[in-house]
């Protein structure tokens, strides 16, 4: 028992270290890419090609003066950054990076990630509330409403995935997507050669994939859904009053969340680590980088959506489409197994 706990903690530490070490480079990649898209250089002075820029930023933030605003709820003000960062990092322990590279294969893997996402809201809400600043407060209210609304749609998208793969276990969801593309048509199993059995290639999962991506953007508060920190209206939203390392923790959490959503997208819809020739880990990271790239691309090209439009999109578009997708899938299952067996 004690040995098991030790190995569990060791795996956890290894995964966290890898995530922590990758984030500075993801941030640099985004800044360089945004520079490219906006026809400017981006940070390229610190180290070769700007590679050390993020580390220089961390050093700068470490030496900043810590300011706690007057009238702030001190305990919660100090707690909030940790409440954002810890759930964001804890999600990585259930991601299957390769056939034997999953720290824990929980029986409730998908729900575990949903649960941590729903706890992540508290950090943002409390950061805004405890700062005793109206901009931060408005940002907090926006983010809580936004995250509750989009959680439902994302949940429905995950239900679709679970219905198609028949498991809540992330390891099994990936295994279900092995081999060539298969589907049931007119009472028999049709196999399509050369195409992988990824959910992203099955038409019945397309609405779910779209909802998951849009919802993922909204849950991570990334452009074009970055209303909680809309700088044109709210200065910097919920983290307006934060300085130094506490601000850095919000920043880290945002990128950790981007990595989580990317890893989840790959795991649920793009066959996880499955792929020909290259080793599984390389395939996983390759697919994951493409989704991370999508996040950056969206930030560079899409304007911020208006707040009422955001709520309208969540409740009147994504949610009904998600429900319809679940119903359609249920009918497909009846066609597949026949009425007699139910």
């Amino acid at each position: 028992m004690a040995e098991e706990v030790f190995w569990g903690i060791l795996k956890f530490v290894i995964v966290l270290t890898c995530v922590f070490l990758s984030i500075p480079f993801v941030i640099l990649a985004e800044r360089r890419f945004l520079g490219f898209m906006q026809d400017r250089y981006g940070p390229n002075r610190v180290g070769p090609g700007g590679l050390l820029q993020s580390f220089a930023d961390v050093v700068k933030l470490l030496f900043k003066e810590e300011i706690i605003p007057a009238g702030a709820d001190k305990a919660l003000y100090l707690l909030a950054p940790a409440l954002v960062l810890v759930p964001a990092l804890c999600t990585f322990v259930v991601i299957p990076f390769g056939p034997n590279a999953q720290p824990v294969d929980l029986g409730i893997g998908v729900l575990y990630i949903l649960g941590l996402a729903s706890l992540g809201v508290y950090g943002i809400v409390l950061a805004g509330w405890s700062s005793n600043s109206k901009y931060a407060f408005l940002g907090a209210l926006r983010s809580s409403a936004q995250m509750i609304s989009y959680e439902l749609a994302v949940g429905l998208a995950i239900v679709v995935v679970v219905m198609m793969t028949g498991s809540l276990r992330l390891g099994e969801i990936v295994n279900e997507q092995a081999g060539p593309l298969r589907f049931w048509w007119a009472g028999q199993l049709v196999e399509v050669p050369f195409l992988p059995n990824w959910l992203a290639l099955k038409p019945l999962a397309w609405p779910a994939l779209l909802i998951f991506l849009v919802g993922g953007f909204a849950e991570t508060n990334r452009a074009p859904f970055d209303l909680p920190e809309a700088e044109t209206e709210l200065v910097a939203g919920y983290h307006t009053e934060y300085t130094g390392m506490k601000f850095a923790m919000f920043f880290l959490a945002e990128y950790a969340n981007v990595l989580t959503v990317s890893a989840m997208t790959v795991t649920l819809f793009f066959g996880g680590w499955h792929g020909p020739l290259l080793p599984p880990l390389v395939w996983f990271l390759l697919k994951m980088s493409l989704v991370v790239f999508l996040f950056m691309w969206a930030r560079a090209t899409l304007p911020r959506i208006r707040y009422d439009r955001l709520m309208q999109l969540g409740w009147t578009a994504l949610l009904p489409v998600g429900l319809a997708n679940v119903v359609a899938l249920a009918f497909y299952h009846i066609l597949k197994v026949g009425y007699g067996t139910i």
Binding site: L141, S144, I148
Partner: peptide, 26 residues
Amino acid sequence: AEFLAIIQVIVYAGAIMVLFLFVIML
């Protein structure tokens, strides 16, 4: 009871209490 535990977190600790907090703050 891991399923019960995670549902407790998602529904009570996550969704319902965030709504409570939202109303209290509002």
